[in-house]
Simulated assay, not measured.
Amino acid sequence: MIQGISLRHLRFFLAVAQEASVRRAAERLPTDASNLSRAIRELEHRLGNVSLLDRRRRPLQLTPAGLTLARQGRELERQFLRVVGELRSVDAHGDADAGGRE
């Protein structure tokens, strides 16, 4: 079950993946390293106990699952933001029938 995964989880993971360091990722995000690490562990748990990072290595390395999420994650984020923009546009124009309801 993937219930409870947020865009925040994805953004935190992508920052860690890019930096290969929880500490460096936390420096550029509005959080601290312990909160960031906790959020990544929560994401792994909510994905079904999937390991995204090999924490035994320095710099951190992505597992095969982590590589997959890193590859697809930016596009997921873009799609989500695109949908939110469309929803806001529809709402701003009061177009209640835009969804094709009769």
Rank of each mutant, 00 (worst) to 15 (best):
S37N: 12
V84S: 02
Q3W: 11
R38V: 02
L29Y: 06
R101H: 13
R56S: 15
R56A: 13
I2S: 07
P59Q: 07
L47Y: 05
S51W: 09
P30I: 05
L10Q: 08
Q79P: 00
G66N: 03
R71F: 08
D32I: 07
Q72E: 15
E86A: 12
E77R: 09
V16K: 00
E19I: 01
S37M: 08
V83N: 01
E19Q: 12
V50T: 10
M1S: 13
E86G: 07
L81Y: 13
E86W: 13
I2F: 12
T31L: 02
E86T: 10
Q3G: 08
E75N: 14
D95E: 14
A25N: 07
L76A: 15
T63W: 07
F12W: 12
E44Q: 12
I40Q: 02
E44S: 05
Q61W: 07
S21W: 08
E19L: 01
E77G: 00
P30V: 06
L36M: 05
L69F: 12
G66V: 02
Q79D: 10
E75F: 11
L14S: 05
E75D: 15
R55I: 09
R46P: 06
T63P: 01
L7S: 13
G66I: 01
R41P: 00
L47A: 05
S89D: 15
N35S: 12
L53K: 01
A65E: 12
P64G: 03
R46S: 05
T63C: 02
R46D: 06
V84L: 13
L52D: 06
D54V: 07
L53F: 09
V90I: 15
R23Q: 08
G100F: 11
I40E: 02
R56W: 10
V83A: 11
L67I: 04
A25S: 04
F13C: 00
G100W: 10
A15S: 13
D91M: 09
A26F: 05
R78K: 14
L7Q: 12
E86I: 14
T63F: 06
L62V: 06
L53E: 03
G73L: 06
G73Y: 09
A65T: 03
A98M: 06
T63K: 03
R8S: 11
I5A: 00
L47F: 08
E102D: 11
G85K: 10
F13R: 01
T63V: 06
G100D: 09
H9C: 07
A39L: 03
A20I: 05
L7C: 03
R46C: 08
E75A: 13
V16L: 00
L47P: 02
P64H: 05
L7I: 15
V22D: 00
E19T: 03
R82K: 11
A26I: 03
A39K: 02
R57C: 06
V16S: 00
E75P: 00
D97N: 04
L76N: 06
R57L: 14
D54C: 02
F12I: 02
V84D: 07
A96W: 15
R101F: 15
P64W: 07
R57H: 11
L76T: 14
R38F: 11
P30C: 02
S89H: 14
F13Q: 01
A25E: 03
L69Y: 08
N35I: 01
H93R: 15
R41S: 03
F12K: 00
G99E: 11
D32Y: 12
A65I: 05
A96G: 03
